[in-house]
Design a protein around this nucleic acid. Structure first.
Lengths: 108, 108
DNA sequence: CATCTATTTAGTCAATTAGCTAAATAGTAA
DNA sequence: TTACTATTTAGCTAATTGACTAAATAGATG
């Protein structure tokens, strides 16, 4: 999918990538550092990082041979916002239902 | 992926499925009703519902020929919780950093 | 320059996904 | 029973994904 939310959700739909983000929530890290807890090859880790980058969940710097990744929270906020919207609509409906019941109570 | 969070995130990583959930946040709906806004075939819609069901995002009833779907919010709360955890760790680190700076300031 | 470390690219492969049509099943109603 | 509506299953296809190894690139250092 090309839309931003879908990119974000699908980037988050992998436990390795989520673990990486958790690691990055403690501060920037290099590819090798991020790879350490896992048994995957470095190219595999590199690809995971590309997925996270494409979703805007990380940004990458350039320091010597290192390309340190840093967590970016904007897409996470978009996700939180979408969740709130779902709930907000839910609550609006509940309110509407409640008002309807009130009105019917008055008419009965 | 077999873990619950991954199932949830990957179920949410599709705009059609997200639109369905939004629709369901207004109340239960049948497959046909859910299919209406889209140009996809019914089998396709049915498969999307199976994905949502497998992720626990909907539950389905049985009323005559209809199999109405109903939004389930538990997995959404798990997602919200995971997002909070990320941020919570983030904030903890910031606090720690801040305390470090304070201490160094005292030593300087 | 030669080499070492960090990272990415290229190319392969198996599994999964999202769509389709055609056919099967479940339940209602004539 | 037959026919109609709602939904799912089966089987197909093309695209995507996540893993790998081998090789290429970027930069630092002997």
């Amino acid at each position: 999918m090309t839309d931003a939310l879908s990119l974000t959700f699908s980037a988050l739909a992998d436990p390795t990538r989520r673990a990486m983000l958790l690691r990055l929530s403690h501060g920037p890290a290099t590819v090798k550092e991020l790879a350490e807890p896992f048994q995957f090859s470095l190219p595999t880790i590199s690809k995971h990082l590309q997925v996270l980058e494409r979703a805007g969940l990380i940004e990458r710097g350039r320091e010597a041979q290192y390309r340190p990744a840093q967590l970016q929270t904007a897409p996470l906020e978009d996700v939180a916002h979408w969740l709130e919207t779902l709930n907000w609509e839910n609550n609006l409906d509940r309110l509407e239902e409640y008002l309807c019941e009130l009105q019917q109570g008055r008419q009965a």
